[in-house]
């Protein structure tokens, strides 16, 4: 992997630090008029998600991290691994529960997800921003109540719990935003 000088640091660049892959979130050039220049960077650990600050001496280098985002189709969960397939090469990979993490409740078979690979192994899984899931549990719907603005919890296939309007029933399919877990609309009946 190439190494990068602080001159090449920018948002999104993936670098190795203390054995872990990181993404640069913010790069600030700090220099007293008559003194040593530094780059203070805010970086996200791509394994833990933790954000830390790190100071580099300007001109120093960091090793690049072999981290790529790949669009992959979610196939199935065998109880231990969540399996994804590259839509063009048909190559399949399995991700464990720690890797799938918060994404697992949003995954639906056939959906295209963003799988981040580090040295070819899955690091994180990002579900599509919007997905359509079926309600498996909720209080009975109040027919016709589309105006009062009240809400109630509903459990979706996959296990996510979202706040939905009162008229939603078990068996309804909902469009939801996976980034914040918000209900968007009722999807067309299948």
């Amino acid at each position: 992997m190439a190494s990068y000088s602080t001159n090449e640091f920018k948002r999104g660049l993936k670098i190795m630090l203390d054995g872990d892959p990181y993404a640069i979130i913010e790069n600030e050039f700090v220099k007293p008029g008559k003194g040593q220049a530094f780059n203070r960077v805010k970086i996200r650990n791509l394994k833990s998600g933790r954000v830390i600050e790190r100071t580099f001496k300007s001109g120093d280098t960091a090793e690049g991290a072999d981290v790529v985002d790949v669009e992959m189709q979610y196939l199935y969960n065998d109880g231990e691994q969540w399996h994804f397939m590259h839509p063009e090469t048909f190559e399949q990979i399995g991700a464990d529960e720690k890797t799938v993490a918060d994404a697992k409740v949003w995954l639906k078979e056939q959906d295209i997800c963003t799988v981040t690979l580090w040295n070819g192994a899955p690091l994180t899984v990002l579900p599509p921003n919007h997905t359509i899931l079926k309600v498996v549990e909720t209080e009975p719907g109040i027919r016709g109540d589309t105006a009062t603005g009240g809400s109630k919890p509903a459990t979706l296939e996959g296990g996510a719990v979202v706040q939905v309007p009162l008229f939603i029933n078990i068996g309804d399919t909902l469009k939801v935003d996976t980034r914040n877990g918000e209900y968007l609309s009722r999807a067309a009946k299948e």
Binding site: V30, P32, G35, Q36, F38, T55, K57
Partner: peptide, 16 residues
């Protein structure tokens, strides 16, 4: 891990 001279450390402490 930074390789700095004495004035470099002073600059780091001052700026940060």
């Amino acid at each position: 891990g930074l390789q700095l001279e004495r004035d470099g450390w002073l600059d780091l402490l001052l700026t940060h």
